[in-house]
């Protein structure tokens, strides 16, 4: 993948101010996203995983400029959109759309499906060959809904169908990039699979690029080409799917994978588990240096004083850890030593 990335995120930051008192003095900041960098290439799917509060949703909203970043840069298709004015960014919004998690609250209950899916055409002033209605009906058919249901309201549809309406709306203007924030987590298991398959079909049919934000590691593994793992506003590991799931280097990734319940009663015994202690610390007051050190079983002194940089330890495999696992023995960098050889630098 040497081609120009479709989306490039560099050192992205979002600090939400915490204010107190009558004068609303700022007393602190929630560092929801704190220096995140990655590229997304045309036609691929990047999965963004992490637990609640890790900043994955905020990252998605920053990319689409639904909220203003406090630092860093977002480059989309060659344009730096980080601080672009609303007027100039509007044409670019056609190319970049978002699918939301909750199919109940993301559709206006007073609008018909036709109005919801047709809104992008009106807002963007796009001319269609046979009128907006025809275009909307084509899209409805594309996502597996009955075009005859053009005049129905969202409450007449089931959860899975509503998510299809949401997907139809994002597809209306033939975007290049789709950010999907937990696209299936609100759906029943059997419906989840339908929507996952639909997203995959649409990708190959329409040549789409996805950033899929999810907490479900099994879904992300199924749908993604590359996966980024976030913890407390930082990227801790980024690798292609196979490498991340088979040879995870960051202890946190390892712990996440071992925590996923396996639907096989025979594996109940004898499965080696890593059990993390406690909960994710508050992003208001994250631990210094390596943010994972409070829950990490490999943490040493250095982890409390020096923040590990995100380094490429294997081709296409970036990790931010002082003591990575599964790292190639002849690590390319100073920090790329294996577990056994890693000295406690105090």
């Amino acid at each position: 993948m040497t081609a120009e990335p479709l989306l490039s995120v560099q050192g992205l930051e979002k600090h939400f101010p915490v204010t107190k008192g009558l004068l609303q003095r700022q007393v602190g900041a929630v560092k929801a996203v704190d220096g995140v960098s990655f590229d997304v290439f045309k036609g691929e799917t990047l999965g963004l995983v992490g637990e609640s509060g890790c900043g994955k949703t905020t990252t998605g909203r920053l990319i689409t400029r639904l909220i203003e970043p406090t630092g860093g840069k977002v480059v989309f298709d060659g344009h730096d959109i980080t601080h672009m004015s609303q007027g100039r960014i509007r044409p670019l919004r056609r190319e970049m759309q978002m699918i939301f998690q909750d199919p109940y609250s993301s559709l206006n209950p007073r609008h018909t499906v036709g109005a919801i899916v047709g809104a992008p055409f009106k807002i963007q002033g796009v001319q269609t060959e046979h009128g907006i209605k025809k275009a909307v009906q084509d899209i409805l058919a594309l996502v597996g809904l009955n075009p005859e249901h053009y005049n129905r309201y969202p409450h007449e549809f089931s959860g899975g169908q509503r998510q299809r309406i949401g997907i139809a709306r994002t597809l209306a203007l033939k975007p290049k990039l789709i950010i999907a924030d937990e696209p299936v987590s609100a759906l029943d298991v059997s419906i989840q699979a339908q929507v996952v398959n639909l997203l995959e079909d649409l990708q190959s049919e329409l040549d789409l690029t996805y950033v899929v934000i999810a907490h479900d590691l099994s879904v992300v593994r199924h749908i993604s080409d590359r996966v980024a793992v976030m913890y407390l506003g930082k990227l801790v590991e980024l690798a292609d799917r196979k490498a991340l799931y088979e040879t995870p280097m960051h202890p946190y990734t390892n712990a996440l994978l071992s925590a996923v319940p396996i639907p096989d009663p025979k594996r109940r015994q004898g499965r080696e588990r890593i059990r993390l202690q406690g909960d994710v610390p508050s992003p208001l007051n994250p631990p210094p240096a390596c943010r994972f050190h409070t829950r990490c079983w490999k943490a040493q002194e250095i982890c409390k004083v020096e923040e590990p940089p995100l380094l490429q330890l294997a081709p296409g495999h970036q990790v931010a850890c002082h003591f990575p696992e599964n790292a190639p023995a002849a690590g390319g960098t100073a920090e790329g030593t294996t577990e056994a050889a890693a000295p406690a630098q105090t």
Binding site: S158, G159, G160, Q161, D188, V189, S190, I191, Q192, A193, Q194, V196, N197, E200, L217, S218, V219, R221, H222, I223, R241, Y245, L257, V260, I262, P263, D264, R267
Partner: peptide, 25 residues
């Protein structure tokens, strides 16, 4: 069978496609 086919699983190779149940509950 449908429930088992609908679930992406970590302990198996990612198959090309999930095998969902058509329709909704």
């Amino acid at each position: 069978w449908g429930l088992l086919g609908s679930m992406p699983r970590l302990d198996r190779e990612p198959t090309e496609r999930l095998l969902p149940i058509k329709g909704s509950p």
